[in-house]
Design a protein around this nucleic acid. Structure first.
Length: 106
DNA sequence: CTGCTGACTGGTA
DNA sequence: GTACCAGCCAGCA
């Protein structure tokens, strides 16, 4: 496992239940603020059992991707109290987890 | 090494 | 609000 990937994984694992973070947030916390796309790539190859990938969403407040498991992602989020309308996350700004970097909710 | 590929993002129209 | 465009970067062929 590469260093970047391990940092991304540990970052995602630190996201508390009921909270979400964007790919950009995770990338920034991993030390590569512009590697959001690469983070998505990593999420694609990591095992859902070890990493709460469903808590990582797109910056626009949309679900983002989850391969062919978008339904699963929705149900997992709903199980943690996060409501989703279509692919839009309700209360996104307040559900967004404040990672050590990038303090404000833009 | 080069050249794609995306679970992305921000800007512009 | 939507659509398109150009950077972006780790991983893989």
């Amino acid at each position: 496992m590469t260093n970047f990937k391990s940092r991304v994984v540990s970052t995602v694992r630190r996201i508390p239940p009921g909270r979400v973070a964007t790919y950009g947030d995770v990338a920034a916390a991993a030390g590569r603020p512009r590697a959001a796309r690469a983070v998505g790539n990593i999420m694609r190859t990591c095992s859902l059992r070890d990493v709460p990938c469903h808590r990582v969403v797109a910056a626009a407040g949309q679900l983002g991707g989850f391969g062919g498991y978008l339904e699963l992602k929705r149900s997992l989020l709903r199980a943690e109290g996060i409501l989703v309308s279509g692919n839009r996350i309700r209360e996104f700004k307040t559900r967004r987890w404040n990672i050590s970097r990038r303090s404000v909710t833009r």
